[in-house]
Design a binder for these strands. Structure first.
Lengths: 125, 125
DNA sequence: CCTAAATCTACACCCAACGTCAGGTTTAGG
DNA sequence: CCTAAACCTGACGTTGGGTGTAGATTTAGG
C-alpha cells in the first residue's frame, strides 16, 4: 500500500508519516528506486500503537525508544531482559496514572453532584 | 508571600507563573502600586491543581476553563450550567482514558509474562 | 542611607509536533 | 501515449508551553 492509503487507514496525515519516519518511528517496507514508499499491514498497526502511546502521554522520542519491542523480538537474553525492564517501568507508570485518573474521576463526579444541587437550588428561588 | 517563594513551594519557575497569569490561570492576591505580586496560600494549591490537571492531559486553556470551580463558585445559573457541561465532558473523557489505560496495562502484563517465559527458556538451553 | 537581592515589563527565542506551499517526479487508467 | 492524481523533497509557518535576557524599579538588612 502507498502512503495515501496508510494515511487514511491509520488516521494520520502523510506529512505526519514523513515526520515519524525522520524520527525513526516508522519506515516503508520498500522504496524501489523511484522514491515512492510502500507499506505493509504492520505499518498500520505500528501507527495505531504510536497513537495509543501518545495518548498515554509519551513523547515521540520516548515512543521511538520502545516501539520496536512491540513488533520484533529482542534478540539474546540481554535484549529480552532490557525489554522486560522497560515494560515493568511502563507498568509502574500506568498504575500511577490509573490512580491519579481514578481520583480525578471521583473528584469530577462529586463536583457534578454539587453543581446539580446548586442549579436546582438556584432554580427554586 | 512573593513570587519567589510561591515559585519554590509550587515547584514552577516564576516565569511560568507570569505566563499562567497571562492565561488567567492564577492571579496575585494583591498588587499594591509598586508592581510586586503578593500571593496567599490558595495560590500554592492552585498551582498544584494545575499541575495535576496537566498530568491528566488537559491543555492550559482547558484548565483555565475549569480551575475556578475548584476555588470559587461560578456565579449565576448560566455559569453553573456551563461548568456542569464542561465537567460532564471531562468525565466522558476520563472514562475513555481509563478504558484505554486499562487495556494498555493488560497488554503490558501479558508481554511481561511472555518475556519472563522467553528468558526462562533461553536460560534453560 | 546604601546596596545587593528580588521583582517588574517586554521582547525574543526555544522545542515538539505538526501543517502549508511550491515545484518537480511518478504512476495508473482511458 | 497523455494527463490527472498521487507522490516526492525542502523550506517555511504555526501552535502550545514555556525560557532567556535586558534594563529599570523595589525592597530589606546592615
Amino acid at each position: 500500500m502507498q502512503i495515501g492509503e496508510l494515511s487514511e487507514r491509520a488516521g494520520v496525515s502523510h506529512r505526519t508519516i514523513h515526520y515519524y519516519e525522520r524520527l525513526g518511528l516508522v519506515k516503508p517496507a520498500e522504496r524501489e528506486g523511484t522514491g515512492y514508499r510502500y507499506y505493509d499491514e504492520v505499518a498500520v498497526k505500528r501507527l495505531e500503537k504510536i497513537a495509543t502511546l501518545k495518548r498515554l502521554g509519551l513523547s515521540l522520542d520516548e515512543i521511538a525508544a520502545v516501539i520496536d519491542l512491540y513488533f520484533e523480538d529482542a534478540s539474546g537474553i540481554r535484549g529480552k531482559e532490557r525489554v522486560l525492564e522497560i515494560l515493568q517501568a511502563q507498568l509502574v507508570n500506568a498504575n500511577a496514572q490509573l490512580d491519579e485518573l481514578t481520583a480525578f474521576k471521583r473528584d469530577l463526579e462529586s463536583n457534578i453532584t454539587r453543581m446539580h444541587a446548586l442549579i436546582a437550588e438556584a432554580k427554586r428561588t
